[in-house]
Amino acid sequence: MAKQAPGVRIDGLTVVYKTPAGELPAVRDVTLTLEPGTITGIVGESGSGKSTMALSLLNAVQPPGRIAAGSVEIDGLGDVVGLRGEELRKARGKHIGYVFQAAQNSLNPLKTVGKQLLDLGRSHGVDDLRGLVREAKELLGRMGLDGARVLDSHQHELSGGMRQRVGIMLALVLNAHLVVLDEPTTALDMITQANILKIVREVHAERGLTTLVITHDIGVVAEVADRLAVMYGGRLVEQGPTRHVLGAPRHPYTRGLIRAIPRLVGDIAEAQALPGRPPTLATVPKEGCVFRERCPLRMDVCDTVDPEAHADGARAVACHAVTVKEHA
């Protein structure tokens, strides 16, 4: 299998969770392409289905959830939705690296990082374990850590920023070329956040990766992503090149998100929190636009018809109001 940045085509992906009220979609009919070698950012408030979508890339949606429809084609792997058992296990870690939220404890608290690295190597049939350790030390050194010391440490001996770098190391050490980072800087202090993002950018470029960064913090994607996709209530409401989406947001939700960022320069009062709260699985409207309850541009049609994504060059927006205006 050629080891180079793979392309990813998510098509019509729907993921549902079983709830007392039946199976409800957390991700609904999402279509998104990750171009080889790019960094794509996904933003949206908490609960909009970002993590669920990220897990779908590894076909790892946890029960009571399941992928109900759609496909996730990854170059070199095929449709991961159809992968099972050992095939799926081997794809994880080796082809797709997954980095957890920084504050999450993604390491076995009873084992040193080094021992877990060896467990990882053995799981994937790595013969040259010395080589693996060397590679790990190099990656850690590359991220500004003392590799030997870190491999000798337990999780509780590492700071949040160090753990996050260990997570990135473990995602890359088997030479995965598709990397998914779910909230990589949440719960880190500002300086560590900036460091981690710098590392993500640099490692991405050096290794020639295809990277997906998931965050609720639009500032984070602004910093690293080539392309941006905005999620709300399980739907992809807008996507396009980062500069365009941030410079000229079209979807009222995207505009609301951007207005809500407190800028360092300028009047803090200018930042306006988005009114209302994001929907939960139970409160997402079954028909019509998912955002209409909080939307300043709400029209009658929004109550009944779910807006389709309209493509316009490299950008796409799913909003009746925007479409009407353009066609007027």
Partner: peptide, 20 residues
């Protein structure tokens, strides 16, 4: 616990995850 899911997402063998 998160680290169990993490181990699975790293493609750790079942026997190793079980030991964890």
């Amino acid at each position: 616990d998160d680290f169990i899911l993490a181990a699975e997402l790293r493609g750790m063998k079942r026997s190793i995850v079980f030991r964890y």
